[in-house]
């Protein structure tokens, strides 16, 4: 009997029948992995452009202090704070606590506009500062005091942090 035509033993035929598809399946799966492994990682797609919120409009630049506000500062404040707001008015050297230098941003940017307003309106003592600063609330109206606060911001070239 030709060995090629001779029937295979039953065990071999069974093994081929069971393992053949299994091996094929393994080979297929393995390639797939290899294919995946070999594939260079695709560059991450560029992040979808975030729809940028429209930039907030720049705060309107404060109007420079009016001549009236400057005159008010010169009339009342300059006695202690100085003609240019440097804290060197004619009373300065006689005061226990030197008047605030309105050109120094380091301190003034730590104060809110409301705190500056209160200091002018109610005096230094009312806001926990030096009692040498009198209260001007019975002398100047609120509009004038707000204008002085803006002028102080102009002198210090600073805003509250």
């Amino acid at each position: 009997m030709d060995p090629l035509t001779r029937p295979r033993p039953i065990l071999i035929r069974l093994a081929i029948a069971l393992l053949g598809p299994l091996l094929l399946a393994l080979l297929f799966l393995a390639c797939g992995r290899e294919e995946n492994a070999a594939r260079p990682e695709a560059p991450a797609p560029p992040p979808a452009p975030v729809a940028e919120a429209p930039a907030p409009p720049a705060p309107p630049k404060a109007e420079p202090a009016s001549a009236e506000t400057r005159a008010t500062y010169q009339w009342y404040c300059a006695q202690c704070h100085g003609v240019k707001g440097k804290g060197n008015g004619i009373n300065a050297k006689w005061l226990t606590v030197p008047p605030r230098d309105h050109t120094k941003a380091e301190y003034l940017e730590t104060r809110t506009d409301q705190q500056l307003f209160d200091a002018i309106q109610q005096g230094g003592l009312a806001v926990g500062r030096a009692p040498c600063m009198p209260r001007w609330g019975d002398t100047l109206d609120e509009k004038t005091i707000h204008a002085l606060v803006r002028y102080i911001r102009e002198l210090c070239e600073c805003e509250a942090i």
Binding site: Q79, W94, P131, M133, R135
Partner: peptide, 25 residues
């Protein structure tokens, strides 16, 4: 005079040593 109404910032008063002290405007 010296604390609540800040008069001393602009006017001389008399300090505890009897000396004239205060602002000059």
């Amino acid at each position: 005079f010296e604390r609540d109404y800040s008069c001393i910032a602009c006017h001389e008063g008399i300090n505890l040593a009897g000396q004239a002290r205060g602002g000059v405007s």
